[in-house]
């Protein structure tokens, strides 16, 4: 009993630094702009107002931008799942000459910060006429550096699959593609779940690339749109910005709340376990 009280105490104290900023973000979006940085900060606005939430849609094609971010993140997630499951499986379970060397080559993608390659990538996409389109935001994450992490996770997962399963399937006359599709992939759901979350969040929060590649307001993604709520003298309209930021975070949080049990327990049953 005493341990329990103690545990709850620790958890509650630990929560504060995790929760306060989000709380502040949401409540401040209901305050007038001038009150946001008042000191000491008010935990709840005196006179909460949703007007800033409405302004978000008046000032920018926010619904369109929301859709842009959503569909890009979705396409990137699906594409990454396909690319990384295939590659991760092959690197883990198929034997072919040059396998380790090729894996190392692919791993270089894990090592490159996007600041490093943004200029050459920009030149490439510019020469293909793809600047100010969503293509760079879709193609690079699916095939380039960001998907390498996914491939790595998938490989680590497939390595732990018991070999007997494949042997049995092979005895039954299944070829590699069939083994992959009918045996490995269904078993890999938890790892695929982890990859989905990583990938979706990565795409959803991408900031540098959209700023560099996308130039028209109606093609903006959300993180880029967040910087655009300013007053006549470029002073940020904090309450509007924070309303928009809240709107980008809350749906993802809700999805996590709903899916987290399956996600964590799924991982625990087979996934990246010991």
């Amino acid at each position: 009993m005493r341990t329990k009280v103690w545990l709850y105490g620790v958890l509650l104290v630990l929560c504060v630094p995790f929760v306060f900023p989000t709380w502040w973000m949401v409540t401040s979006s209901l305050k007038p702009n001038a009150d946001i940085f008042a000191f000491p900060p008010a935990l709840w606005p005196d006179d909460p107002s949703w007007s800033a939430w409405g302004q978000v849609f008046d000032m920018q094609p926010f619904a369109q931008q929301y859709w842009n971010s959503a569909y890009i993140a979705l396409v990137v997630t699906l594409g990454t799942l396909a690319v990384s499951a295939l590659a991760g499986y092959a690197f883990a379970r198929v034997r072919f000459p040059g396998q380790n060397a090729l894996f190392l080559v692919v791993l270089t993608g894990l090592l490159i910060p996007s600041e490093v390659t943004i200029v050459p990538l920009f030149r490439m996409f510019n020469s293909w006429g793809m600047v100010d389109t969503h293509w760079p935001l879709i193609l690079v994450p699916i095939f380039g550096a960001p998907s390498v992490l996914a491939t790595f996770i998938m490989r680590q997962f497939f390595i732990t699959l018991p070999g007997e399963l494949e042997e049995a399937a092979r005895m039954d006359g299944l070829g590699r593609p069939a083994i992959f599709w009918r045996i490995a992939v269904p078993l890999a759901k938890p790892a695929l779940g982890a990859v989905s979350i990583f990938t979706f969040l990565h795409s959803w929060n991408l900031y540098l690339e959209p700023i560099v590649f996308v130039q028209s307001q109606e093609k903006f993604t959300l993180p880029q749109a967040l910087t655009q709520f300013v007053d006549v003298y470029q002073g940020p309209l904090w309450n509007v910005q924070l309303s928009a930021a809240s709107m980008t975070a809350i749906p993802v949080l809700i999805v996590f709340v709903i899916a987290q049990r399956q996600f964590i327990e799924g991982l625990a049953h087979t996934g990246l376990k010991g």
């Binding site: 200029v119 920009f122 030149r123 510019n126 700023i211 560099v212 028209s216 307001q217 300013v230």
Partner: peptide, 23 residues
């Protein structure tokens, strides 16, 4: 004429990148 509003904090950086990228 298309007006392209860039974030203030990274304004010069962004146009420099665009110039470097040939756009």
């Amino acid at each position: 004429v298309k007006f392209d509003a860039l974030p203030f904090e990274t304004y010069t950086t962004t146009i420099t990148t665009q110039i470097a990228g040939g756009n």
